[in-house]
Simulated assay, not measured.
Amino acid sequence: MIVGRVVDENRVLIWNAEDAYKLRKDHRIVGNYVGALPCKPRQDVWLGLPLELMPEETTLLLEQGVLRLHEAQRPPLPNIHSTEEGVVEKKLKMSTDDHATVDRVVRWSFPQTPQEELHYKVFRDLWTKGYYLTAGLKYGGDYLVYPGDPFLVHSHYVAIVKDSSEVFSTQQLILAGRVTTKVKKNVLLCSQNTSNGELVYITVQWTGIT
């Protein structure tokens, strides 16, 4: 069972390297590395552990029985004092209570709103179809959809999730099409049929005018 640490109620971090590898290899869960590399801490091109999971990834793993959430334990504050030689030491103040700290299991509550439910339904459906998904904010969407591991292939679609009652103007459609075409991707509009609850996908490819 993989253990995720919950920080600030809605952020889930994976600190174990083997667990992060297993999520990617066995479950097609990519996440996002947010930690600095020990060998090169002053750059942000290549990042390392911990691995942060999207809320959709967390809920999916919980449903699959793969993940267990625990509350992140904050380390005790250092007790700074001077020695007889005048050298400053830092010692962690460890009391008997610190050793008896309970690793509490956290209850997860995503999705809550109708919008979150639609996003999760789309995420789970695309994942079930065999795709890899990552956050798509970089290209103005909700998810980037990959046919294989993102380390090996580029994403084919920028998924934009819209409720059937939302207005998606022509200008927004043109902007999305031009942006995705610039990076050699297609727009994937995702919504839900209000009559039967089935998901509806529309692929938009920008061809331009010649």
Rank of each mutant, 00 (worst) to 15 (best):
residue 193 N to R: 11
residue 9 E to Y: 15
residue 104 R to F: 11
residue 124 R to C: 07
residue 72 A to M: 06
residue 66 V to N: 03
residue 32 N to M: 12
residue 187 V to E: 01
residue 166 E to W: 15
residue 180 T to A: 09
residue 82 S to V: 13
residue 124 R to G: 05
residue 111 P to L: 07
residue 43 Q to A: 06
residue 81 H to G: 12
residue 119 H to E: 14
residue 16 N to I: 03
residue 21 Y to V: 11
residue 199 L to P: 11
residue 117 E to G: 04
residue 133 L to Y: 02
residue 81 H to C: 12
residue 132 Y to Q: 00
residue 173 L to R: 09
residue 129 K to G: 05
residue 209 I to C: 14
residue 165 S to K: 13
residue 67 L to D: 14
residue 114 P to W: 05
residue 5 R to E: 05
residue 12 V to R: 02
residue 5 R to C: 01
residue 132 Y to W: 06
residue 152 L to E: 13
residue 158 V to A: 02
residue 189 L to D: 00
residue 88 V to M: 12
residue 144 L to V: 02
residue 102 V to R: 13
residue 34 V to L: 05
residue 89 E to M: 06
residue 146 Y to R: 00
residue 41 P to F: 12
residue 164 S to N: 13
residue 129 K to A: 11
residue 42 R to V: 07
residue 59 T to F: 12
residue 80 I to P: 07
residue 64 Q to Y: 10
residue 56 E to R: 00
residue 190 C to H: 07
residue 188 L to S: 06
residue 108 W to K: 09
residue 59 T to N: 14
residue 210 T to F: 07
residue 92 L to W: 13
residue 145 V to W: 00
residue 189 L to T: 01
residue 114 P to K: 03
residue 90 K to S: 02
residue 100 A to Y: 14
residue 62 L to K: 05
residue 4 G to K: 01
residue 92 L to Y: 10
residue 53 L to E: 02
residue 140 G to A: 09
residue 72 A to W: 08
residue 169 S to N: 09
residue 92 L to C: 04
residue 74 R to W: 11
residue 39 C to N: 14
residue 197 G to K: 07
residue 119 H to G: 05
residue 144 L to P: 03
residue 175 L to N: 11
residue 97 D to M: 13
residue 148 G to L: 00
residue 77 L to C: 10
residue 150 P to C: 01
residue 178 R to T: 14
residue 111 P to C: 10
residue 180 T to L: 05
residue 27 H to Q: 05
residue 50 P to D: 01
residue 120 Y to N: 10
residue 200 V to N: 14
residue 23 L to W: 03
residue 12 V to M: 08
residue 171 Q to D: 08
residue 20 A to K: 01
residue 110 F to A: 11
residue 129 K to N: 12
residue 112 Q to K: 14
residue 131 Y to M: 00
residue 48 G to C: 08
residue 168 F to E: 07
residue 113 T to L: 13
residue 109 S to M: 13
residue 51 L to P: 01
residue 5 R to V: 01
residue 204 V to I: 10
residue 122 V to G: 09
residue 116 E to Y: 11
residue 161 V to Q: 00
residue 136 G to C: 01
residue 205 Q to R: 09
residue 191 S to N: 14
residue 167 V to C: 12
residue 113 T to I: 13
residue 166 E to L: 14
residue 101 T to I: 14
residue 138 K to Q: 10
residue 96 T to L: 15
residue 82 S to H: 09
residue 157 Y to V: 00
residue 133 L to N: 06
residue 107 R to F: 12
residue 159 A to G: 04
residue 18 E to D: 14
residue 5 R to N: 03
residue 35 G to L: 05
residue 192 Q to F: 03
residue 70 H to Q: 15
residue 88 V to D: 08
residue 137 L to F: 08
residue 103 D to S: 15
residue 145 V to G: 00
residue 152 L to I: 10
residue 31 G to C: 07
residue 53 L to Y: 02
residue 14 I to S: 02
residue 22 K to L: 07
residue 65 G to S: 04
residue 131 Y to G: 00
residue 76 P to G: 08
residue 3 V to K: 13
residue 24 R to M: 11
residue 193 N to A: 12
residue 55 P to R: 04
residue 138 K to N: 12
residue 188 L to P: 05
residue 27 H to A: 04
residue 203 T to D: 04
residue 14 I to C: 05
residue 197 G to S: 10
